[in-house]
Computed example of a mutant assay.
Amino acid sequence: MSAPRVPETDGEGPTAELLRARRGGQLSALDRLLLHSPPVAEGWNALLGALRGGTTLAADLRELVVLRVAVLNDAAFEWAAHEPIARRAGLAGPQLQALRRPDAGREPVWTPVQAAVLAYTDASTRAVTVPEEVFAGVRAHLDDRQVVELTALVGGYAMVSRFLVALQVPPPPGEVAG
């Protein structure tokens, strides 16, 4: 396994303890890199904590977004860290396989709300602009709060994936807490 472009920190200090608290006691390689900048690590921790545990989006939708962004941005770490979580959230093998295909939204494995969220994730990640018909598809299933949460989730995990890919963080050997 290769090493990231920036060495990991020792994972000590008050900011590291904040990250450990959110993650159940363990730091990931991502956390150890973020700790080079405690203010960034603290903000990241607060944002990702809110996205992972403070939204009203169903867990399957949240993990659908995370994994699709991982595929679109070629973030192997993100996929490896979230695939087990996605399975526990109810995404099945055929859905996980479909997420890896360019035309994932056309697969007959999605509920209507999952298909709408997938189309929104693809549009926002690939082109940033979300066409009106894609937005309308999400609005048919989600309220105002959930649309805001979905949009922040897509953008938040785009940030995560870009960080991981730019610093060439290798996939973890096991599951990483969200």
Rank of each mutant, 00 (worst) to 15 (best):
P170I: 11
D122A: 11
P102K: 09
R62S: 14
L51V: 06
A70C: 08
P173Q: 12
E107P: 03
P84W: 11
R88E: 13
A136E: 15
H141Q: 11
P131G: 10
P171R: 13
G11S: 04
R126W: 04
T121C: 02
E63G: 00
E83H: 07
G54K: 02
F163D: 00
E133M: 07
L142M: 02
P173S: 14
G90Q: 12
R106S: 14
A80D: 12
W79C: 10
R88G: 07
R20K: 11
A75Q: 09
H141K: 08
P84N: 06
L51H: 04
A76L: 14
M1T: 14
P131R: 10
A21E: 14
N73R: 12
A166K: 02
E132Y: 02
A16Q: 10
A50S: 14
A76P: 08
D143W: 01
G13A: 05
H82K: 09
P171E: 13
G49W: 01
V128Q: 07
R23F: 12
E107D: 14
P108M: 10
G49L: 04
S124E: 06
G156R: 04
D122L: 08
V147G: 04
V65S: 07
G24V: 09
A158T: 07
A81M: 03
G93Q: 10
P108K: 11
N73F: 08
E133Q: 07
G11R: 07
P4N: 05
A115W: 01
P173D: 15
Q26A: 14
L18F: 02
L153P: 00
A41D: 03
P172K: 12
G156Y: 11
L99Q: 03
R22C: 09
A86C: 00
V128L: 11
L35Q: 02
A50G: 15
V117H: 04
A50L: 13
G53N: 04
A104W: 06
L72K: 05
A104Y: 08
D60Y: 05
Q114S: 05
F135A: 15
A58F: 01
L35W: 03
V69S: 01
A86L: 02
E42M: 11
G13D: 10
T111K: 01
V113F: 06
G43H: 03
N45A: 15
L48E: 14
G49K: 08
A89L: 07
A76G: 11
P4E: 12
G93N: 03
H36A: 07
A59G: 05
V128E: 03
V147R: 09
L164F: 07
W110A: 08
P4W: 13
L47W: 10
V117Q: 00
Y157P: 01
L51C: 09
A119R: 05
L51A: 13
A136N: 12
T111S: 15
A3T: 12
P131L: 10
P108D: 12
V109G: 03
F135V: 07
